[in-house]
Write a protein that binds this DNA or RNA. Structure first.
Lengths: 223, 223
DNA sequence: ACCTGAACACCGTTCAAGT
DNA sequence: ACCTGAACACCGTTCAAGT
């Protein structure tokens, strides 16, 4: 897997950036951003807190590596023989589900752009948009917009998911929000007032895919 | 401005949540998330650190209030007589510019959803999409997707902007990224390799608007 | 009701010392 | 080359005490 193999690391429990990142992801998944501490990480890896700094520059570096690891895993393994539209949908859903499963990734994405994994997403979307017949002059902007859309909307969704995870369940939370929206007064907020009832019932995943589809329709309609 | 006026706060320098949030925004703008500390805030407001806790529950609450304040200011003042498409563009650009000017808002958006300012955005986009002729059954999903798109993409953009702000200028940073992309090898990354050169020259604001337009085209093409 | 500021628990990071 | 763990600087939050 690694480029250099450090002459077969002597012991299986030897420290490495990979093992550190792996443990960090577990801690982040378990308790969010605040649950990741160097002390906890050191204890989990049965070592001193300073040892981690030999493999990792600092906490930001560790968070970036963890984010990159999650996104990279989500993008690989895309079967590309289902047509451009379905391939795009598959990649998009992969990213969506990955961020949904690791909500802290959403916040990280808004802090450190230009992941090492970004070219993979860009390549996947760009080549499929080209196959879809998008003309050369529009290709760069369209691909950028699609990448930003998927990462951005997935991040937004993960932010919502966080609320449900904190004890109270999904429908209850959305029900409360819907009530607040419904109370906003039909004069100043006629649309919100009318649409509030649909809030608790909607499916985030379906809505995400609908958004991607709308975007694709716009891209193909534009030429 | 406030609902209750606390019988005309005695002195002009009296503490209030508004003044605290205002000072917090200035500190966040100046140095990012890490620059906001209760000690610094207390010194800036010439008070004790504990005093702030009388008006604000904790740091998360303060960050949420600051985020809401920025977004709320961006959404108000939308002249609505320029047609639905232009009104949507205006609201979207307002949010984009606000997040661009306050990059820390992007990260916050990925942490705390359901801002108090959200209904304003929802109302603006939803009513204009309706005016655009989007049929009732698609209205909720379309509006949700557009809101998530604008907030998400604007957040993604702010993440990029952070890099340029840290000393080195925009073109230099994007030039470096473009070089890395170009080196990725035309066999595995033909699209990225080919498109890398367009990276340093693109205009984020124009690309954002192009994305919103593509989305709108998709929405209108869908019926 | 609102402010003060010392105190507590905790955290990222460093570094001399080890192997 | 890599690990140890005490030490440093700093931070969010609390709370008894003031006005």
């Amino acid at each position: 897997m690694t480029t250099r193999q450090h002459r077969e690391a002597r012991r299986a429990d030897a420290l490495s950036k990979e093992r550190i990142v792996e443990a960090a992801i577990e801690m982040l998944d378990a308790g969010g951003e605040k649950a990741l501490t160097f002390r906890g990480l050191a204890e989990r890896l049965s070592t001193g807190s300073g040892a981690i700094y030999w493999h990792v520059a600092n906490k930001d570096d560790l968070l970036a590596a963890a984010t990159d690891c999650v996104i990279a895993h989500a993008v690989t393994d895309v079967a590309g023989d289902a047509g451009p539209r379905n391939t795009i949908r598959t990649i998009a859903l992969g990213v969506f589900d990955a961020i949904d499963a690791h909500p802290w990734v959403g916040a990280q994405l808004a802090r450190r752009p230009w992941l090492a994994a970004l070219p993979h997403i860009f390549e996947g979307f760009g080549s499929q948009l080209e196959a879809l017949g998008v003309p050369e002059p529009m290709l760069f902007d369209s691909t950028s917009a699609l990448v930003a859309h998927v990462l951005g909307v997935a991040g937004q969704n993960a932010a919502n998911g966080r609320l449900y995870a904190q004890g109270t369940d999904r429908v209850a939370v959305l029900g409360t929000v819907a009530e607040q929206w419904a109370r906003l007064g039909p004069e100043r907020f006629p649309f919100v007032h009318r649409v509030a009832a649909q809030l608790p019932g909607h499916d985030d995943r379906v809505q995400f895919l609908a958004g991607v589809d709308l975007f694709l329709r716009g891209v193909t309609a534009a030429h």
